[in-house]
Amino acid sequence: MADLALLAQEAVNVGVPIGKGLVYGLAAIGPGIGIGFLVGKAVEAMARQPEAAGMVRTTMFLGIAFTEALALFGFVLSFIVS
């Protein structure tokens, strides 16, 4: 009985950091790919039409802000998990 309690204690001790890492790590995959695509396409657009670079950059930042939000939720969640 005492052994089982100890085991549970250890499981919590070990599981929390792993869970935190998983939460943020998984949450970062999608936005990582998304921002990669986004910026890549934006650079492509700027290279094709340098005169539109300002507009593209603004839109790019906006898109990054939206995409990044998901990763940030993961970051916040990793602190909430305990």
Binding site: A65, E68, A69, L72, F75, V76
Partner: peptide, 13 residues
């Protein structure tokens, strides 16, 4: 909701 939240968390994080 998301705009202020991400604005703060992006910088802080």
């Amino acid at each position: 909701l998301v705009r202020p939240l991400t604005l703060a968390v992006r910088l802080g994080a």
